[in-house]
Each structure stands twice: as structure tokens, then as C-alpha cells.
């Protein structure tokens, strides 16, 4: 490449040639188009060129989904007690502190009361940037408190799940949150209140095998990766190359795991229209 760089001196600096202020431009991970952030914001962080659904935080998710971007948080101040006093190369408590600093959130799940097209609902949204959206004691507890609120107020429950799975640092206590959240979902079903689960890229392991797959109706965003075991581990186990669409929304739909794939911009109207048919407030 050196001879080329000598011929065309600008080639080496191509990537950083943009002198616009930081954060105004991003490139699409899939089609690599350079996108203007204010424009992207309007398209709900879906690439206008190729339709790729970029990852967004839990707050952004709630802002987009709920009427007037307004909501009231449930159990916002719960924080982990580090029940195992877990330490690897770092203390678990310091990893949590770092996650809090990086995301501005106290835990990997936000649970709120809000309105969807005039209908009261309870919504839970995972924050993937908080320790990979992993489920420990606080995530499980907040989820259950959200379900309890939905039961008390007789309103539907909606969850946007994106997570790497159960949180290692709380080991068995994390694993048991799978049982805890699943048991609570059953109570909601008994009250004949709808539970709509929305699968967001990526959703795996213990959260997939509890919260995410137990929706009365399971919806996924396009191209979301979802499964129990991740692709890499499966490839190492079975030693064959997996197809490109493996564990993508379209694969899940054809295998019968989800009811529908809905574009981010249509989630509000689609979920609202489903609720109108199965739920009377």
C-alpha cells in the first residue's frame, strides 16, 4: 500500500477526513453508509439506506415507544447487594459502578408505567450497555414489581428484551431469576392480562429462556439475533459453519418461535392494534 499512499497522499487519512463535530456522523454497521445523526434520530436509528436496526438504549426505546415520551419509573433505585461478594480480576461492585458511569442507569432493566396511544401499560426495557443487559437479582426483582403493578392496575405488560443472559457475578441467584420472572408472568396470564414480548438484538441465554420467550405474543425487530446458545459456542460444538441467517428474526419466524417481525417505526401502532383486539381497559 505504501506506493499507493505516496501517489495519493490523502488515502491514509480517508477515515478521519470528516472535520464535523464528533457525534454528528455515524456509519451504518451493515451497509457502511455515512449517516447524519439528526436524520438518523428521525428514522429511530434505523439506517435509511439499508433498513438496518441499530442498537438503542433503554431510555431512547421508552421515549420512542410511549405517548409524549413520558413515563413514571417503578423501583428506580434498586441496586445490587453483591450477594456472592464476587471478584474476578475486578470486584463485581466496581464493574457495576463502571456500568452506572457509562450508561447513567442504575441497573440493566428500566420498568415504567406509561401510555400507548391512550392506553395505560407497564413497560420493561433492557439496557444492553449495562453489563450486557444481564439479569441478576435487581433485574429480576424490578421485572416482578412491574408485573405486580400491571396486575394491580389491570393493564398490559410489554417487555423489550435485549440481553446476554443471566449475570455470572450473581451465579445461582441470577439463574433463579429465570424461575422468578417466569412464575410472575404466569400470574399475569391468570389475570388474563396480555404480555407482549419484543425481541431486540441481541437476546440470548437465561433472559431468552425465560422473559423473552414467554410472551402471549412474541415480536422481533428485523435482523435481531436471538437464541439460547450463541453462534460461536454452537460452531465450536458442532464444528460446521452455520448459515448466515442463523438465529436471525426471519429464522425465528420460520421456525415458529415468534409471531411477527415488526419494523421499529411500526412497533407503536402494531402493538397498540393488537392490544385493542385482545384487551379491554
Amino acid at each position: 500500500m505504501n506506493w499507493l499512499r505516496r501517489l495519493i497522499p490523502s488515502i491514509g487519512t480517508f477515515k478521519s477526513k470528516s472535520k464535523v463535530p464528533d457525534g454528528l456522523w455515524v456509519s451504518c454497521k451493515k451497509c457502511e453508509s455515512v449517516l447524519y445523526v439528526p436524520e438518523l434520530e428521525k428514522s429511530l436509528y434505523v439506517c435509511p439506506k439499508c433498513g438496518y436496526h441499530m442498537r438503542i438504549g433503554a431510555r431512547k426505546r421508552l421515549d420512542i415507544f410511549l405517548d409524549n415520551s413520558s413515563y413514571e419509573e417503578i423501583a428506580p433505585n434498586l441496586t445490587t447487594k453483591d450477594p456472592l461478594r464476587f471478584k474476578d480480576s475486578k470486584y463485581y461492585t466496581s464493574r457495576v459502578k463502571e456500568a452506572v458511569a457509562a450508561t447513567g442507569e442504575k441497573e440493566a432493566l428500566i420498568v415504567v408505567k406509561g401510555m400507548l396511544k391512550g392506553v395505560s401499560i407497564v413497560v420493561a426495557a433492557f439496557e444492553f450497555r449495562f453489563l450486557g443487559g444481564s439479569m441478576g437479582s435487581v433485574v429480576g426483582e424490578k421485572f416482578v414489581q412491574g408485573i405486580n403493578t400491571a396486575i394491580k392496575e389491570k393493564v398490559p405488560f410489554i417487555c423489550f428484551a435485549t440481553s446476554g443472559g443471566a449475570r455470572m457475578q450473581e451465579s445461582m441467584i441470577s439463574l433463579m431469576q429465570m424461575a422468578k420472572t417466569s412464575a410472575a408472568i404466569q400470574k399475569l396470564k391468570k389475570e388474563k392480562l396480555p404480555y407482549i414480548s419484543v425481541l431486540i438484538d441481541p437476546i440470548y441465554g437465561g433472559v431468552s429462556a425465560s422473559i423473552a420467550m414467554l410472551g402471549d405474543i412474541n415480536i422481533a425487530e428485523p435482523n435481531a439475533l436471538s437464541g439460547f446458545t450463541g453462534r460461536r459456542v454452537i460452531e465450536q460444538t458442532v464444528r460446521i459453519e452455520l448459515p448466515d441467517n442463523f438465529q436471525k428474526s426471519e429464522y425465528l419466524l420460520s421456525n415458529g418461535a415468534i409471531d411477527m417481525i415488526i419494523h421499529r417505526k411500526n412497533l407503536r401502532s402494531k402493538i397498540s392494534s393488537i392490544l385493542n383486539k385482545i384487551y379491554k381497559s
Binding site: 420467550m213 446458545t229 425465528l252
Partner: peptide, 22 residues
């Protein structure tokens, strides 16, 4: 952790048992 298990929705099978047993 296999392909067929994912095709037949391993996550759902596990989740459904947790719900049923509860």
C-alpha cells in the same frame, strides 16, 4: 448447544418448563 435445538426453540422449551413448574 446445537443447531437443531435452536431450530426447535431451546429457549422456549426451558422457559415453558419454568412457568409450568411454578
Amino acid at each position: 448447544p446445537g443447531i437443531e435445538g435452536e431450530e426447535r426453540c431451546q429457549s422456549e422449551a426451558i422457559a415453558r418448563n419454568l412457568a409450568t413448574m411454578s
